[in-house]
Amino acid sequence: MSNNRVGIRLLCLFLPVFFLFSPAGWSQTGNWEIAGSSDGSTLIKRTEAAFVRVKSRFYLMGSRGIKPISIYDARKNTWTEGAAPPIEIHHFQPVNYRNKIYVIGALTGGYPGETPVPYILIYDPVLDAWSKGPDIPTHRLRGSTGVTVYRNRIYIAAGIKDGHRGDHKNWLDVFDPRTGEWLELPDAPHARDHFQAIAAKGRIYLIGGRRSESEKDIFANLEPAVDVFDLRTGSWSTLEEPLPTPRAGNYLALYGKKQIVVLGGETGDQEAAHSETEVLDVENHEWSRWASMVQGRHGTGAVVYRNKIFVASGCGKKGGAPEVPTMEVFEKN
C-alpha cells in the first residue's frame, strides 16, 4: 500500500477524535444564511441603529438621519415601513416592555459631538406611533448605553455624555415604567460605550464596548472585561475570562435562556466589521464560538425567534459606511 493511502486512512481514523477533543472555541456550531423575503420587499439600510422584537414582528429602527422603521413580519416573511421617530436617534439599545418599544439613553445629532436625548421615547407597534415618555434625570443623561429589562424594570448601564469625545460613565440606573420612578444603583467596575447589556438568570451582563475619544484613536480603548451585576445581592463582579474578541459596536442575544451570544462589532486593527459569533454560558461562564456571520456588521441589533437568531443592516466596515442592505439568520445544528 502506498504511503499516500496509509496517510489518508490514518487521517480518517483520527479526525473524529481530533474534533471530539478540540477546544470549544474552535467549534463552528450552526449556520448563517442571508434571508430574502417572500415578496421581494427589503429593509431600509442604516447604521448606529437597533433591532428589537415584539411578538412575531421585528423592528429595525434609528439611524444617522431620520428614517422610517423597517418592520419584518416573521410569519409572512415580508418587510413594511413604520413611522419615523420624531427626532434623529442612534447609538441606543431598545427594549420591549409590555409590547411597546422603549428607547432610553440614545444619542442625537452629528459626529463627534452628539448629545444625549433628554427623555424616553416610546413606540407603540399597534398604533404605529411614537410618543414622548418621562424625562431622564438631568444629572444621569448619557447615550450609547446598555439597556435591558428584568421583572418589569428597565436597567440602564454605562454610556457616554459627550458624543464620541469623552466623559464615559460606569453608572447603573433602574427605571420603573409603572411608577415613573428612577433609581441610581452601584457603579459598574468599568466605564464603556458602544456595547450592549443583557439580563439572564438574575444577573445583568455588560459585554463589549470601548471608551470613545475622537480626538485620539476613536477605535482604541476597547473594554474586554465582562461586568456582571447580581440583582439579588446588588453587587458587581468581573468575570475571570474576558470577551475572547474585544470589540465595540457589538450586539447581544439571549439564546435558550442560558447562552449569551455576542455578535459583530468594530475595531481599529481591521477594516471589515467583525463577523465573529462568541457565546457565554451563564451557568459556568465559559466561552465558545459558533459559526461566523456571512457579513460582518456593527451598529445594529439581534433578535431571537423560534430558536433562530436574526441580524439586520448595520455597517460593514469600521466607521459609518457602507450600510449593509441585508438580513441574515442563524440556525443551530
Results as ranks from 00 to 15, higher is better:
residue 297 R to L: 06
residue 159 G to C: 00
residue 236 W to N: 10
residue 172 L to H: 11
residue 244 P to H: 07
residue 67 K to S: 10
residue 136 I to G: 08
residue 119 Y to P: 09
residue 45 K to Y: 04
residue 106 A to Y: 00
residue 66 I to M: 09
residue 177 P to G: 05
residue 214 S to R: 03
residue 172 L to K: 08
residue 156 I to C: 12
residue 250 N to A: 13
residue 22 S to C: 14
residue 206 L to S: 10
residue 244 P to Y: 07
residue 61 M to L: 15
residue 19 F to A: 11
residue 218 I to W: 11
residue 131 S to K: 13
residue 192 R to G: 04
residue 44 I to K: 12
residue 34 I to C: 06
residue 130 W to Q: 06
residue 179 T to V: 05
residue 85 P to Q: 02
residue 136 I to A: 08
residue 278 E to R: 04
residue 236 W to K: 10
residue 37 S to Y: 07
residue 195 F to Y: 13
residue 96 N to K: 00
residue 93 Q to G: 01
residue 262 V to L: 10
residue 158 A to D: 14
residue 209 G to Y: 03
residue 53 R to P: 04
residue 109 G to E: 04
residue 262 V to P: 13
residue 250 N to C: 14
residue 25 G to W: 15
residue 319 G to Q: 06
residue 324 V to Q: 14
residue 240 E to V: 03
residue 103 V to L: 07
residue 159 G to S: 01
residue 267 T to R: 15
residue 213 E to Y: 15
residue 147 V to W: 01
residue 268 G to M: 11
residue 98 R to G: 01
residue 35 A to K: 14
residue 40 G to E: 03
residue 201 K to I: 00
residue 320 G to H: 14
residue 26 W to K: 13
residue 181 E to H: 12
residue 224 P to I: 00
residue 115 T to M: 06
residue 38 S to T: 12
residue 55 K to C: 01
residue 272 A to F: 05
residue 322 P to L: 01
